[in-house]
């Protein structure tokens, strides 16, 4: 892999230098980080200050600019092969964060402002937070735990895992599973091509939920008192349910719709060729 190779070369070629600087900022500002290769960790504290720690070879510069409440951190040395830089940045809790990287794992903890991460290679991991999360990577898993704002996550290769998330969810993958555990959202749209989609959480009144895959299975665990109009679509797959559902006259390639409770929420479960399962939290299979 290019990034590992370059990292290796960088470590062999140049001695590492440490940068550690702290400066005051106004709260509610923004941190922008851009780097090509390396690693970024962002965490928060209660101070109105930003601390940037960076480990980098001395041939690569680290450029830190701040004006009022916007802080911009770049790794330089764009001519020639990129050398890896590791950033550990601490920001005020209220800060928003933007991170752009090429090959860089990213981890962000407890940032309450909006968070946007875009990388090509590298997992994205987010803990806590209250803002809007927009996480995009091509080759890397996305994990979000304990977030209290909306989540939009997109990856191509590898999966998406959301746990203890409260807020609207949009999750997209191509070659990876999407797993949502303990999710409380008014709207969920989760779609993959090669992989399963699983969801355990609340189905809210008038909420809208869509779970879709081509090859994999779709499994929902919902409370027993759920009120939803459920549409199940499959071409070659199967459907099984804990709830008292009679699916009548299901035609190949068509949809079957049934109502649970008052039917206020809309739930769509789609799998072209896989198993679709609707499970009741707390178990209990219905005798059909």
């Amino acid at each position: 892999m290019v990034s590992a190779f370059v990292l290796g070369v960088a470590l062999l070629a140049a001695p590492q230098q440490q940068t550690d600087t702290t400066f005051a900022v106004s709260p509610g500002g923004r941190l922008d980080v851009e780097l090509m290769v390396g690693q970024v960790s962002v965490e928060s504290w209660e101070r109105n200050a930003v601390r940037v720690r960076a480990t980098h070879p001395s041939t690569t510069g680290v450029d830190i600019r701040h004006s009022g409440d916007v802080v911009r951190v770049d790794a330089e040395g764009r001519r020639g092969p990129p050398a890896a830089v590791t950033f550990v940045i601490t920001v005020p809790r209220t800060f928003g964060v933007n991170i752009e990287g090429l090959s860089a794992p990213v981890e962000v903890r407890n940032v309450d402002g909006n968070l946007a991460v875009e990388t090509t290679n590298g997992p994205i991991t987010v803990f806590g937070g209250r803002g809007r999360l927009e996480l995009e990577t091509t080759n890397g898993a996305i994990t979000v735990r304990g977030a209290r704002g909306s989540v939009r996550a997109g990856t191509v290769n590898q999966g998406i895992t959301l746990e203890d998330v409260e807020g609207d969810v949009q999750a997209q993958a191509v070659n990876g599973h999407i797993s949502m555990q303990n999710v409380r959202a008014r709207s969920v749209d989760a779609e993959t091509v090669n992989g399963s989609v699983s969801f355990r959480g609340a189905i809210q009144e008038n909420g809208r939920y869509r779970f879709s895959t081509h090859n994999g299975g779709v499994t929902l665990h919902v409370p027993a008192d759920v009120s939803a109009t459920v549409t199940v679509s499959t071409e070659n797959g199967t459907f099984d349910s804990d709830f008292p559902v009679q699916v009548q006259g299901r035609r190949r390639g068509d949809r079957a719709t049934f109502t649970l409770g008052t039917g206020s929420a809309r739930v769509e479960m789609e799998s072209f060729g896989g198993r679709i399962e609707l499970r009741r939290i707390g178990g209990g299979e219905h005798q059909q």
Partner: peptide, 22 residues
């Protein structure tokens, strides 16, 4: 870079297979 090429290539194939199925 080659790693990204491979990922995109494989994923494109997955999508194309799904399209062919559909």
């Amino acid at each position: 870079d080659p790693a990204t090429v491979r990922v995109i290539d494989e994923s494109m194939a997955i999508i194309d297979a799904a399209l062919a199925d559909a």
